Simulated scan of single mutants.
Amino acid sequence: MKSCFHSVGLPSRPLHDAVSLIADAGYEAIELNAETLPWAPAHITPAAGLAERKAVAEACRARGLAIPAVGAHIGMVSEDPVERVTAINFVKGCIDIARDVGSPFVHILSGPLAANIDRDQAWGWFTYAVELTTIHAGERGIGLGIEAIAGHLFHEVDDYHRIRRDLPGVPFKVNFDPSHLEVQKEDPRRVVDELGDLIAHVHLKDGKGLFPQFEFPPLGEGTIDFRSLIDGLRRHGFDGALSIEYEAQVYGYSESEEQILSHGRSFFDRLIA
Protein backbone atom coordinates (compact mmCIF):
# COMPACT_ATOMS: atom_id res chain seq x y z
CA MET A 1 0.00 0.00 0.00
CA LYS A 2 1.15 3.52 -0.77
CA SER A 3 1.58 6.34 1.75
CA CYS A 4 -0.36 9.44 0.72
CA PHE A 5 -1.21 12.82 2.20
CA HIS A 6 -4.39 14.67 1.29
CA SER A 7 -3.54 18.29 0.47
CA VAL A 8 -6.57 19.46 2.47
CA GLY A 9 -4.35 18.92 5.52
CA LEU A 10 -2.16 21.85 4.45
CA PRO A 11 -4.86 24.47 3.85
CA SER A 12 -2.64 27.52 4.25
CA ARG A 13 -0.09 26.37 1.69
CA PRO A 14 -0.15 26.86 -2.09
CA LEU A 15 -0.18 23.53 -3.88
CA HIS A 16 3.45 23.65 -4.98
CA ASP A 17 4.56 24.28 -1.38
CA ALA A 18 2.37 21.38 -0.25
CA VAL A 19 4.04 19.11 -2.82
CA SER A 20 7.47 19.93 -1.42
CA LEU A 21 6.44 19.50 2.21
CA ILE A 22 4.71 16.18 1.55
CA ALA A 23 7.67 14.84 -0.42
CA ASP A 24 10.14 16.02 2.24
CA ALA A 25 8.10 14.17 4.87
CA GLY A 26 8.66 10.90 3.01
CA TYR A 27 5.25 10.29 1.48
CA GLU A 28 4.87 8.46 -1.80
CA ALA A 29 1.79 10.29 -3.04
CA ILE A 30 -0.38 13.40 -2.76
CA GLU A 31 -4.16 13.58 -3.03
CA LEU A 32 -5.36 16.83 -4.59
CA ASN A 33 -8.15 18.75 -2.88
CA ALA A 34 -10.61 20.44 -5.25
CA GLU A 35 -13.22 21.11 -2.55
CA THR A 36 -13.76 24.52 -0.99
CA LEU A 37 -14.35 24.17 2.75
CA PRO A 38 -14.91 26.81 5.44
CA TRP A 39 -11.40 26.13 6.76
CA ALA A 40 -9.62 25.05 3.56
CA PRO A 41 -9.61 26.53 0.05
CA ALA A 42 -9.34 24.21 -2.93
CA HIS A 43 -5.80 23.52 -4.13
CA ILE A 44 -6.99 23.02 -7.69
CA THR A 45 -10.32 23.47 -9.49
CA PRO A 46 -11.64 23.09 -13.03
CA ALA A 47 -10.77 26.77 -13.51
CA ALA A 48 -7.09 25.78 -13.63
CA GLY A 49 -5.73 26.04 -17.15
CA LEU A 50 -3.79 23.34 -18.95
CA ALA A 51 -0.45 25.02 -18.20
CA GLU A 52 -1.21 25.00 -14.47
CA ARG A 53 -2.26 21.36 -14.61
CA LYS A 54 0.94 20.40 -16.42
CA ALA A 55 2.98 22.32 -13.85
CA VAL A 56 1.31 20.40 -11.02
CA ALA A 57 1.97 17.08 -12.72
CA GLU A 58 5.60 18.00 -13.36
CA ALA A 59 6.14 19.21 -9.79
CA CYS A 60 4.82 15.92 -8.44
CA ARG A 61 6.91 13.88 -10.89
CA ALA A 62 10.02 15.85 -9.97
CA ARG A 63 9.54 14.97 -6.29
CA GLY A 64 8.53 11.36 -6.94
CA LEU A 65 4.91 11.80 -5.82
CA ALA A 66 2.08 9.89 -7.44
CA ILE A 67 -1.37 11.50 -7.57
CA PRO A 68 -3.77 8.66 -6.73
CA ALA A 69 -6.91 10.77 -6.35
CA VAL A 70 -8.63 14.11 -6.79
CA GLY A 71 -11.29 15.02 -4.22
CA ALA A 72 -14.16 16.58 -6.23
CA HIS A 73 -16.53 17.18 -3.34
CA ILE A 74 -19.52 19.40 -4.01
CA GLY A 75 -23.15 19.07 -3.00
CA MET A 76 -25.12 17.36 -5.77
CA VAL A 77 -28.68 17.29 -4.40
CA SER A 78 -29.65 20.96 -4.32
CA GLU A 79 -33.31 21.79 -4.82
CA ASP A 80 -32.17 24.22 -7.53
CA PRO A 81 -31.77 22.37 -10.86
CA VAL A 82 -29.21 24.93 -12.05
CA GLU A 83 -27.05 24.21 -9.00
CA ARG A 84 -27.33 20.48 -9.68
CA VAL A 85 -26.14 20.95 -13.27
CA THR A 86 -23.31 23.18 -12.02
CA ALA A 87 -22.24 20.47 -9.57
CA ILE A 88 -22.23 17.80 -12.28
CA ASN A 89 -20.13 20.05 -14.50
CA PHE A 90 -17.74 20.72 -11.61
CA VAL A 91 -17.20 17.00 -11.13
CA LYS A 92 -16.70 16.51 -14.86
CA GLY A 93 -14.13 19.29 -14.74
CA CYS A 94 -12.31 17.55 -11.88
CA ILE A 95 -12.32 14.33 -13.88
CA ASP A 96 -10.59 16.23 -16.67
CA ILE A 97 -8.07 17.53 -14.13
CA ALA A 98 -7.35 13.95 -13.09
CA ARG A 99 -6.73 12.98 -16.69
CA ASP A 100 -4.41 15.96 -17.23
CA VAL A 101 -2.30 15.39 -14.08
CA GLY A 102 -2.15 11.61 -14.44
CA SER A 103 -4.44 10.64 -11.58
CA PRO A 104 -6.56 7.50 -12.01
CA PHE A 105 -9.40 8.35 -9.63
CA VAL A 106 -11.88 11.05 -8.59
CA HIS A 107 -14.28 10.83 -5.66
CA ILE A 108 -17.56 12.59 -4.97
CA LEU A 109 -20.21 12.96 -2.28
CA SER A 110 -23.94 13.63 -2.32
CA GLY A 111 -24.12 16.66 -0.07
CA PRO A 112 -26.67 17.12 2.74
CA LEU A 113 -30.39 16.79 2.20
CA ALA A 114 -32.40 19.95 2.79
CA ALA A 115 -35.23 19.52 5.29
CA ASN A 116 -37.95 20.31 2.75
CA ILE A 117 -36.75 17.81 0.11
CA ASP A 118 -38.14 14.30 -0.23
CA ARG A 119 -35.35 11.76 0.26
CA ASP A 120 -36.39 9.56 -2.65
CA GLN A 121 -36.53 12.54 -4.98
CA ALA A 122 -33.05 13.64 -3.91
CA TRP A 123 -31.82 10.07 -4.27
CA GLY A 124 -32.97 10.17 -7.89
CA TRP A 125 -31.03 13.37 -8.47
CA PHE A 126 -27.91 11.82 -7.00
CA THR A 127 -28.10 8.55 -8.91
CA TYR A 128 -28.53 10.56 -12.12
CA ALA A 129 -25.41 12.57 -11.24
CA VAL A 130 -23.44 9.42 -10.42
CA GLU A 131 -24.40 7.83 -13.73
CA LEU A 132 -23.45 10.89 -15.80
CA THR A 133 -20.14 11.51 -14.04
CA THR A 134 -19.16 7.84 -14.04
CA ILE A 135 -19.73 7.69 -17.79
CA HIS A 136 -17.69 10.89 -18.26
CA ALA A 137 -14.90 9.41 -16.14
CA GLY A 138 -14.91 6.09 -17.98
CA GLU A 139 -14.58 7.82 -21.33
CA ARG A 140 -11.36 9.38 -20.03
CA GLY A 141 -9.95 6.27 -18.39
CA ILE A 142 -10.65 7.55 -14.88
CA GLY A 143 -12.42 5.76 -12.03
CA LEU A 144 -15.14 7.57 -10.09
CA GLY A 145 -15.96 6.75 -6.49
CA ILE A 146 -18.52 7.77 -3.89
CA GLU A 147 -17.71 8.67 -0.30
CA ALA A 148 -20.36 8.20 2.39
CA ILE A 149 -20.46 11.30 4.60
CA ALA A 150 -22.14 11.68 7.99
CA GLY A 151 -25.07 14.05 7.75
CA HIS A 152 -25.41 13.73 3.98
CA LEU A 153 -28.05 12.06 1.82
CA PHE A 154 -25.55 9.29 0.98
CA HIS A 155 -24.11 8.42 4.38
CA GLU A 156 -24.25 4.73 5.29
CA VAL A 157 -23.03 1.34 4.14
CA ASP A 158 -26.46 0.29 2.91
CA ASP A 159 -26.51 3.30 0.58
CA TYR A 160 -23.74 1.63 -1.44
CA HIS A 161 -25.86 -1.48 -1.81
CA ARG A 162 -28.91 0.55 -2.79
CA ILE A 163 -27.09 2.50 -5.48
CA ARG A 164 -25.62 -0.72 -6.88
CA ARG A 165 -29.15 -2.03 -7.27
CA ASP A 166 -30.36 1.23 -8.78
CA LEU A 167 -27.46 1.57 -11.23
CA PRO A 168 -26.70 -1.93 -12.50
CA GLY A 169 -23.85 -1.82 -14.96
CA VAL A 170 -22.63 1.62 -13.87
CA PRO A 171 -19.05 0.94 -12.72
CA PHE A 172 -18.72 3.42 -9.85
CA LYS A 173 -16.21 2.71 -7.09
CA VAL A 174 -15.94 3.33 -3.35
CA ASN A 175 -13.84 6.01 -1.72
CA PHE A 176 -13.54 4.42 1.72
CA ASP A 177 -13.42 6.86 4.62
CA PRO A 178 -14.07 4.91 7.84
CA SER A 179 -14.29 8.04 10.01
CA HIS A 180 -17.72 9.07 8.73
CA LEU A 181 -19.09 5.60 9.43
CA GLU A 182 -17.44 5.39 12.85
CA VAL A 183 -19.17 8.54 14.10
CA GLN A 184 -22.53 7.13 13.03
CA LYS A 185 -21.83 3.92 14.97
CA GLU A 186 -21.76 1.98 11.72
CA ASP A 187 -19.10 -0.72 11.43
CA PRO A 188 -16.52 0.46 8.85
CA ARG A 189 -15.39 -3.13 8.42
CA ARG A 190 -18.67 -3.82 6.58
CA VAL A 191 -17.41 -1.72 3.66
CA VAL A 192 -14.29 -3.87 3.43
CA ASP A 193 -16.14 -7.18 3.80
CA GLU A 194 -19.18 -6.36 1.63
CA LEU A 195 -17.74 -3.91 -0.92
CA GLY A 196 -14.04 -4.70 -0.96
CA ASP A 197 -14.09 -5.29 -4.71
CA LEU A 198 -15.21 -1.68 -5.25
CA ILE A 199 -12.72 0.12 -2.98
CA ALA A 200 -10.36 2.22 -5.09
CA HIS A 201 -8.98 4.69 -2.54
CA VAL A 202 -8.83 4.90 1.26
CA HIS A 203 -8.80 7.86 3.63
CA LEU A 204 -6.99 7.51 6.94
CA LYS A 205 -8.89 9.76 9.35
CA ASP A 206 -9.88 8.85 12.89
CA GLY A 207 -13.25 9.50 14.50
CA LYS A 208 -14.96 9.43 17.85
CA GLY A 209 -18.32 10.40 19.29
CA LEU A 210 -21.76 10.16 17.74
CA PHE A 211 -22.98 12.45 14.98
CA PRO A 212 -23.75 15.31 15.36
CA GLN A 213 -21.61 15.41 18.53
CA PHE A 214 -18.39 13.99 17.12
CA GLU A 215 -14.75 14.71 16.33
CA PHE A 216 -12.15 13.74 13.75
CA PRO A 217 -9.11 13.73 16.06
CA PRO A 218 -5.49 13.01 15.11
CA LEU A 219 -4.84 9.44 14.03
CA GLY A 220 -4.77 7.04 16.95
CA GLU A 221 -6.85 9.28 19.23
CA GLY A 222 -10.22 8.05 18.00
CA THR A 223 -12.00 4.72 18.19
CA ILE A 224 -11.39 3.18 14.76
CA ASP A 225 -9.74 -0.25 14.63
CA PHE A 226 -7.45 0.52 11.69
CA ARG A 227 -5.52 -2.75 11.95
CA SER A 228 -8.67 -4.76 11.34
CA LEU A 229 -9.48 -2.61 8.32
CA ILE A 230 -5.98 -3.02 6.87
CA ASP A 231 -6.12 -6.78 7.40
CA GLY A 232 -9.42 -6.89 5.52
CA LEU A 233 -8.14 -4.68 2.72
CA ARG A 234 -5.12 -6.93 2.29
CA ARG A 235 -7.34 -9.98 2.04
CA HIS A 236 -9.25 -8.26 -0.75
CA GLY A 237 -5.98 -7.50 -2.55
CA PHE A 238 -6.13 -3.74 -2.10
CA ASP A 239 -2.75 -2.20 -2.86
CA GLY A 240 -3.68 1.43 -3.48
CA ALA A 241 -3.14 4.60 -1.50
CA LEU A 242 -3.88 5.17 2.17
CA SER A 243 -4.38 8.91 2.22
CA ILE A 244 -3.99 10.79 5.51
CA GLU A 245 -6.83 13.32 5.63
CA TYR A 246 -6.12 15.69 8.51
CA GLU A 247 -9.00 17.84 9.73
CA ALA A 248 -8.40 17.68 13.50
CA GLN A 249 -7.78 21.43 13.72
CA VAL A 250 -11.49 21.96 13.06
CA TYR A 251 -12.19 20.19 16.38
CA GLY A 252 -9.73 22.17 18.48
CA TYR A 253 -6.56 20.10 18.09
CA SER A 254 -3.40 22.13 17.53
CA GLU A 255 -0.41 20.62 15.73
CA SER A 256 2.20 22.18 13.49
CA GLU A 257 2.45 21.21 9.84
CA GLU A 258 5.64 19.30 10.65
CA GLN A 259 3.89 17.37 13.43
CA ILE A 260 0.87 16.60 11.24
CA LEU A 261 3.00 15.27 8.40
CA SER A 262 5.41 13.36 10.63
CA HIS A 263 2.67 11.82 12.76
CA GLY A 264 0.70 10.75 9.70
CA ARG A 265 3.70 9.11 8.07
CA SER A 266 4.74 7.26 11.25
CA PHE A 267 1.14 6.11 11.81
CA PHE A 268 1.07 4.72 8.27
CA ASP A 269 4.40 2.93 8.79
CA ARG A 270 3.24 1.29 12.01
CA LEU A 271 -0.09 0.35 10.49
CA ILE A 272 1.30 -1.57 7.54
CA ALA A 273 4.33 -3.04 9.32
Rank of each mutant, 00 (worst) to 15 (best):
S3P: 11
G9N: 12
L10F: 11
R13C: 12
L15T: 10
H16E: 09
L21R: 15
A23R: 12
Y27D: 08
A29V: 09
E31V: 01
L32G: 06
L32N: 08
E35Q: 14
W39Q: 13
P41H: 12
I44S: 09
I44V: 15
A47K: 15
L50H: 11
A51R: 15
A51C: 00
R53S: 03
K54N: 08
V56L: 14
V56G: 05
V56C: 10
A57K: 14
A57I: 02
G64N: 13
A66C: 01
A69V: 13
V70S: 08
G71Q: 14
H73I: 12
H73N: 10
G75K: 10
M76K: 10
E79A: 14
D80S: 10
P81H: 02
V82T: 11
T86Y: 00
A87P: 00
I88N: 01
V91C: 01
V91S: 03
D96L: 01
A98Q: 05
S103Q: 04
S103L: 01
P104V: 06
P104H: 05
F105A: 05
H107R: 06
H107F: 15
L109P: 00
S110V: 10
P112Y: 05
L113D: 07
A114T: 11
D118H: 07
D120G: 09
A122C: 02
A122I: 02
F126C: 09
A129T: 13
E131K: 15
L132N: 06
T133D: 02
T134P: 01
T134Y: 02
H136L: 00
G138D: 01
R140S: 03
I142D: 01
A150V: 12
A150L: 04
H152L: 00
H152V: 01
F154L: 04
H155V: 00
V157F: 04
H161D: 14
R164I: 13
R165S: 15
L167F: 10
P168E: 11
G169Y: 11
P171N: 11
V174W: 09
P178F: 04
S179P: 07
H180D: 08
H180Q: 14
L181F: 10
E182I: 05
Q184K: 15
K185C: 10
P188A: 06
E194N: 03
E194S: 06
L195A: 14
D197V: 09
I199A: 11
H203N: 13
H203W: 08
K205L: 02
G207T: 05
K208W: 02
F214E: 02
F214D: 02
F214W: 12
F226I: 05
R227G: 01
I230S: 00
I230G: 00
I230F: 10
L233H: 06
R235T: 13
G237T: 12
F238Q: 07
F238M: 02
G240I: 05
G240S: 07
G240F: 04
S243D: 03
S243Q: 07
Y246R: 14
E247K: 10
Q249S: 14
V250Y: 08
Y251S: 06
S254W: 04
E255A: 13
E258D: 11
L261T: 13
S262L: 02
R265F: 09
S266N: 09
S266V: 10
F268A: 04
D269C: 00
R270V: 02
R270N: 12
